[in-house]
Design a protein around this nucleic acid. Sequence first.
DNA 1: TTGTACGCGTTATCAC
DNA 2: GTGATAACGCGTACAA
Lengths: 334, 334
Amino acid sequence: MGVTIKQIAETVGVSAATVSRALNGLPGVGPRVRKRIASEAARRGYSPDAHARALVTGRVPFLALVVPDITNPFFPAVARGAEEEAALRGCSLLLVDTGDRPERLEHALDLLSSRRVAGLVLAVPAANGQAARIAGRVVMAGVDAPPRSRVPVVGVDDRLGGRLVGRHLAALGRRSLAFVSGPARDRSSRLRLAGLRDEIPRDLLGPVSHGRWTVESGREQGRALFRSSSPPDAIFAANDLLAIGVAQAASDAGLAVGRDVALVGYDDVEVAGLASVPLTTVSQPKLELGRVAARTLLDAIDGLDTPLPALLEPRLVVRRSCGSAPDFATREVP
Amino acid sequence: MGVTIKQIAETVGVSAATVSRALNGLPGVGPRVRKRIASEAARRGYSPDAHARALVTGRVPFLALVVPDITNPFFPAVARGAEEEAALRGCSLLLVDTGDRPERLEHALDLLSSRRVAGLVLAVPAANGQAARIAGRVVMAGVDAPPRSRVPVVGVDDRLGGRLVGRHLAALGRRSLAFVSGPARDRSSRLRLAGLRDEIPRDLLGPVSHGRWTVESGREQGRALFRSSSPPDAIFAANDLLAIGVAQAASDAGLAVGRDVALVGYDDVEVAGLASVPLTTVSQPKLELGRVAARTLLDAIDGLDTPLPALLEPRLVVRRSCGSAPDFATREVP
DNA sequence: TTGTACGCGTTATCAC
DNA sequence: GTGATAACGCGTACAA
C-alpha cells in the first residue's frame, strides 16, 4: 500500500511513463521490460491510485444508488443487481438511504457535483428543479421521472402486473372482488387497479379502498370489508404488506384465507412465501431492475445513445392464498 | 458542474489559493473578498472536486461495507447504521455484496489498495493472510477477526442473548426444551446455546440439533422433534428463519404454537413480527452495530487510539409464541 | 521502444 | 491579507 508508479519505475530503471503504459497494456513497450515491470508491480502489490487516475482521465469509478429505505425488503435486491452490473464495468456502488428526508436527496445530488460519483440511480422521486443539474448522469429506477425532464426511466409494468392478477382471479369464479391499496395518488396503485379492470368482468369488482403501504393499513381496510353486509370473497391487495394485514383481519373475522376468501398480494417480498397461508402474489424482477438501471446509467455516462426507457415484466407467483394449492411449493406462471 | 476553483478565482479577481482558503473557512482572507468569493461560488454552483482534494490531502471520503448477502434482512439495517455514521463524518458508504464468493472479498481488499476507500467494515469472515495488508483500516462487524490479527471487532453478545431466552423460558414452567440451530461450527450457535444453559435447570434441556440457517432446515429439525416419542413443549431456535420452519412443522403436526409448544427465535427480522403467531425473539441492535463499527473504523483511520472491541447488547422481544400474549402488540424486555 | 514535459483540481508552503 | 509555486499520482501528447 502506498506504492507509486514512480517507485516501480525507479527500481526497474525506466521512466514512470513506461510503467504506466506497461501496466495499462498499451503498445510501445518491449516485452522484456514489460515483464520486469509487471513482476515488480506484483511483488510490491502496486495498485494505481483511483483518485489520481480519476483526476486525469475524468472518469470516476463510482455510482450511487439512492433508496428511500434500505430496510424495505424491496430495495436490497435492487442494490445487489445494481452492484453486480456496476462491478462488471469497473465501478463500485455507493448506497444512499434517504429515509424519506429531502435533505438526503440533496446530499445525493451533491455527490454528483463534487464528482464523488459518475452518476445516480434514483429509486426515490425527484423534484422538477433538481432534474436540471443532473442531465445525462441520472436514471430513475421504479419511480417516475420529474415531469418534462428527459431523465431515462427503468420500471416494472404495473398495469401488466394488475392484468396477471385479474386473469388469475377471473378464472377462479369468485363472486365479489375487492381492491385494497396504498395511497390513491401513487401511480402504482392506479396502474395495478387499471390492469385488474382490464381482465375481469365489470360487475365482479366491488369496493376499492386506499390507505398506506403497511400491514396495519391492510388490517384496517380488511376489517372494514369483512364487517360489511356483503363481504367480498376475493381480495387483491396492491402490495404484500397490505395483504398480510388483510389476512390478519380475515383470521380475526374467523375466515380462512384460500377457502372463504381468495387473496393476492404484490411484490413477492420474502415474508409472502412464509405467511401462515403462503401468499399468491406478483413478483417484481428486482435484481433485473437494479441491473438494467445501472447499465442504462453507465451507457448514458459513456455517451452511448441512451437506450429506450425499459419496462420490465412482472410475473405471477401462485401459492396457496387463492385455494389452488400445490402444498407449500411455489408454482410460477410467466 | 465542472466549475473549478480557478474559474471562481478569475471572475472574482483573486488567486486560486485565496478562493481555497475562503471556501474552507481558513483564516487570512479579508471579510469583503470572502463574501464575494462565497457568493460567486454559490452562484455558479461550485463544489470542490473530491478526487483532487483526496489526492492532495490523502484523506479519502469513502468507506466500504462488505456483506455476504444484502438480501438477508439482517444486513440492510447494519448498512443504514453504517451509512448514517459515515455521513456524520463526511464519508459516503460503498456497498460490497460478496454473495459468499471469495473473489469478491478480494475485490473489497483491492478497494483498499487502490485507495478507493479509506477503510472497510467487514461483516464477512476474513482469512488470516488477508489481515496483514489491512492493518488499521478494517473493523469486523458481527464476525470474528482472523486469529491473532489485532483487527478490532464490534459484535453483539450472543451468550447474553441466549441467557435472555433461557430466563424467559425457565419462567414458563415448561417440561422439555429443545434447541434447534444452524451449523455447529458457527460460534453464534454455540454461544447462544451456552447462554441458554446458563439460565435453565439442567434436566430441562432435551435434544440439541443442527442444520442450516434456513426455513427448510427449521422445518426438518422441527419435524424430527415432533415425530419423537417425547416431543418437547418448548423450543429455542437459534434464528428466526429456523423458528418459522419449526412453526410450520408444528402446524403440520397439528400443534398450536404458543399453547402446545412455546417457541423463541433470534434476530427479530421483520417476518418474525408478521408470522401467523408473532414470534418471541431476541432483537439484535443492527443499526447500532453498523453505527459503532463505522465509528470505530473512522476513529482508527484518524489515528485515534482504537477503542476497545465493543460488545453490544441484544434484547428480548416478547410476542405471542410462548403463550403470554398482549394481543398483536409487542412488549419489549430490556 | 522509451523518456520528457505537461496538466488534471486542489491544498499547503512559502514569500510578500 | 494575499499571491506565486510546488506538490499529490497518474495518463498522454510529443520528442528523441
